[in-house]
Computed example of a mutant assay.
Amino acid sequence: MSALRSIARALLPRGVRNALRAPGKSARRALHEALYRAGRHPVLEVRPGWRMRCHPAAYPVIAQHQLRDPEQAAELDRFIAGCAPGMVLFDVGAHYGVFTIAALHYGGPAARAVALDPSPAAVRVARAQARLNGGAQRVRVVQAAAGDGAGMVRLVAVGVQAEGFYVPADAAGGGLEVPQVTLDALAAETGLAPTHVKIDVEGGEAAVLRGARGLLSSPHPPVLFLELHNQMIREQGGDPAEAPALLAALGYRVEGEDGAVLEGAALATPAMLRVVARKP
């Protein structure tokens, strides 16, 4: 069996291997795209008074994560509570753009968003979500990774089972090469100063923060909604204390899910944390 795996790795692109590992899910993805093109756009009541028209691929994912998963539902509720009229969101690791559409809905007609994701599948669906929900003129969807420098970066898909999430490529190579941008450069290029930044980048949090020093040190620094993937960082050989240390150095106060201020080991030890960081 190991010999067959080695041959498959040598002859087949990773995307093909992922599809072969989960043929049922690959077929559903193709069906979802066909339904979207045929005009099937299911409506999901994400929260009372907020009904979102969905790409068929997005509907079950949003329903599972933002409605049925208690931790992710609480994360979205916390973001909604922090939305404000005319807000500008940088949605980093936007995936299907749920937070982007939430910002447009709860931020009113003057709200704007930039949705950033390296996955071509996620970007395609996020653009459809913006169009379906009247945000095409207020959302810019960018296929890129965020980091601490400009250039190209090589990523690999976690797999079909993970709905198109990408992580850094290992030494074996392969994967997808995508542009990498800094949030400081993105703000300069778009002319937008974010009031809110959501960061969900599968362990790359410190690099994103390093590339946003200008924004985070500005007279009007954004509020951060941040996922700290500490266990993933440890598995990648990184230091989970780096991102919290950067936030502290920039003068940010980090709050846990209950609103309590967290510092030091309380931020770096848990496998994963969803936090809000803001300047006092």
Score class of each variant (00 low, 15 high):
193 A>N: 10
100 T>E: 00
266 A>K: 05
125 V>G: 09
267 L>E: 03
13 P>A: 10
125 V>L: 05
15 G>C: 12
21 R>L: 14
229 H>S: 15
273 L>P: 01
143 Q>H: 03
11 L>A: 15
214 G>R: 05
227 E>H: 02
102 A>G: 03
110 A>C: 02
153 V>E: 02
48 P>I: 15
254 V>N: 02
181 V>W: 07
275 V>C: 08
90 F>D: 07
207 A>F: 06
56 P>Y: 05
56 P>W: 09
136 A>C: 03
191 G>V: 06
89 L>A: 03
6 S>I: 07
208 V>F: 00
107 G>I: 10
90 F>Q: 04
119 S>I: 12
246 L>W: 04
17 R>I: 08
216 L>A: 05
144 A>H: 06
279 K>Y: 02
30 A>N: 14
156 V>A: 13
47 R>Y: 04
76 L>Q: 06
249 A>E: 13
128 A>P: 00
149 G>N: 01
195 T>I: 00
137 Q>L: 09
121 A>M: 12
178 V>G: 10
72 Q>M: 15
166 Y>P: 04
120 P>A: 12
70 P>D: 13
259 G>M: 07
175 G>F: 06
221 P>S: 08
217 S>V: 02
19 A>Q: 13
65 H>Y: 14
75 E>I: 08
218 S>D: 04
265 A>S: 07
274 R>V: 00
4 L>V: 10
25 K>R: 15
209 L>D: 02
49 G>H: 01
2 S>C: 07
165 F>G: 13
232 M>A: 14
279 K>I: 11
154 R>L: 02
258 D>P: 09
96 Y>G: 00
6 S>A: 15
152 M>V: 09
233 I>D: 04
11 L>M: 11
224 L>G: 01
110 A>I: 00
94 A>Y: 03
117 D>S: 12
232 M>C: 08
110 A>W: 03
213 R>F: 01
263 E>G: 08
199 I>Y: 01
140 R>A: 11
89 L>I: 04
59 Y>V: 11
80 I>C: 10
196 H>G: 01
264 G>S: 08
210 R>Q: 13
159 G>Y: 12
117 D>Y: 11
40 R>D: 03
86 G>A: 10
17 R>H: 01
243 A>I: 06
69 D>R: 15
266 A>V: 04
115 A>V: 08
182 T>H: 07
220 H>Q: 11
132 L>Y: 09
240 P>Y: 00
275 V>P: 07
74 A>R: 15
200 D>P: 01
231 Q>V: 01
242 E>A: 13
135 G>P: 07
25 K>W: 14
164 G>N: 12
198 K>H: 07
15 G>L: 13
257 E>M: 09
148 D>Q: 03
230 N>P: 05
39 G>V: 04
38 A>K: 06
256 G>Y: 11
265 A>T: 03
21 R>Y: 07
157 A>V: 02
17 R>K: 11
61 V>F: 10
107 G>Y: 04
144 A>K: 03
50 W>Q: 00
244 P>N: 05
188 A>H: 05
239 D>N: 12
173 G>Q: 08
237 G>H: 09
57 A>W: 09
51 R>C: 14
